[in-house]
């Protein structure tokens, strides 16, 4: 089932290189998307003309895998350039443990020398692969992507055909699992921030909003998403916003928040007296999450408070929190530190 859903994700990310506007992010700054895909097994041909067994050759290494083609006018060169530029900032010792693999899904036009020359224009260490149409389709399906589609290009385009292909770069970590994929729109600064975390064995780069803390074994349990820790201005406490999903048949209750060495933490509710025009915050002992329901900690309502802080946090940091539930117990989550100016965007209902 997960793969079916992921295939849909792949389809959603299918972009038409040379097809104006399709799925494009302009001025993006898109973040990593959380996934869970085991390192697949497929064999294609490398630019030396030799068979390349993806799983065997990359096992245990941080591997960035992307599909594209050399005549791609927009997504492929931008994704590749940003990734390679960020990799140039990685210390040489760490860089040795990273593979970047570009699979051309346009074997009719991308001969091995053409593919090699294009990759060398970015970095000679990038591994180029291609193969028969059937082998390429199989490789894309193995990571949950819909196979690329070759179709006539729009009128006025420089090429007669364009290739619709999945744009995200998938990152397989040392635990031979891809926990994240990076959509088109990932910027150099995003890569530079996330690559060190990916280098840690089995590490996970959390998607924007942090966490995917799951209690109760996933299905039927409580899951948290979009966990934000708002860096305070001055000595005021920090606020915690999140979304809790209860996919189980039983209600549960958030009874406490634990921020470890960051400082004392508690759950609060903002109460507004409309007549007096005043707003006050009250500590609450528990917040129920109905069976099958969603609970939002957001400005003006329930929220966590942590403080006074014992150490400074800044925008872009990640902090570890523990949310204690009456039924499911303690759930560890990772929260992204944001500033107050980010709150509206971060907590907007989606």
């Amino acid at each position: 089932m997960r793969f079916d859903i992921f295939a849909l994700v792949g389809l959603a990310g299918l972009v038409g290189c040379g097809s104006p506007g399709d799925g494009r992010v302009v001025g993006g700054g898109a973040g990593a998307t959380s996934i869970a895909v085991p390192r697949p097994s497929f064999t294609l041909t490398d630019t030396d003309g030799k068979p390349f067994d993806f799983r065997a050759r990359t096992a245990g290494r941080l591997t960035f895998l992307m599909f594209g083609y050399t005549r791609c006018p927009d997504v492929c060169p931008v994704q590749m350039a940003n990734l390679v530029t960020a990799l140039h900032q990685v210390p040489p010792g760490d860089r040795m443990g990273i593979d970047v693999i570009f699979v051309s899904v346009d074997p009719d036009r991308d001969s091995l020398p053409v593919l090699r020359k294009w990759l060398d224009s970015f970095d000679q260490s990038v591994i180029g692969l291609t193969g028969s149409r059937a082998a390429l389709d199989s490789a894309q399906r193995a990571v949950g992507f819909a196979p690329a589609v070759v179709q006539p290009a729009a009128a006025g385009a420089p090429d007669a055909v364009e290739v619709l292909h999945a744009a995200p770069v998938i990152a397989f970590t040392a635990d031979d699992t891809a926990h994240v994929m990076f959509p088109f729109g990932t910027r150099q600064a995003d890569w530079e921030r996330d690559i060190p975390a990916l280098l840690q064995k089995g590490s996970r780069v959390q998607p924007p909003g942090g966490t995917a803390g799951v209690a109760g074994g996933g299905a039927g349990g409580i899951a948290f998403s979009r966990v934000y820790f708002v860096a305070p201005a001055g000595d005021t406490p920090a606020a915690v916003f999140l979304v809790a999903h209860n996919t189980g048949a039983q209600p549960d209750t958030i009874v406490a928040l634990d921020a470890g060495d960051l400082g004392p933490a508690s759950v609060h509710m903002t109460m507004t007296d409309e007549r007096a025009g005043t707003t006050m915050m009250h500590s609450v002992g528990g917040v129920a999450i109905l069976a099958g329901g969603t609970l939002r900690f957001a400005p003006g309502g329930y929220h966590g408070m942590v403080g006074p802080l014992r150490r400074r946090v800044v925008r872009g940091d990640r902090v570890q929190l523990v949310i204690r539930l009456a039924r499911a117990g303690a759930v560890a989550v990772s929260a992204v530190v944001i500033s107050y100016s980010d709150v509206d965007t971060a907590t907007a209902a989606r």
Binding site: V26, G27, G28, G29, P73, V78, A81, T85, R187
Partner: peptide, 20 residues
Amino acid sequence: EHPLYGIYELAPPILPMSPH
């Protein structure tokens, strides 16, 4: 250190020149 503007960093390249 990095390109400041997303629209230029993520724009389809038109010259053999990096966004930086």
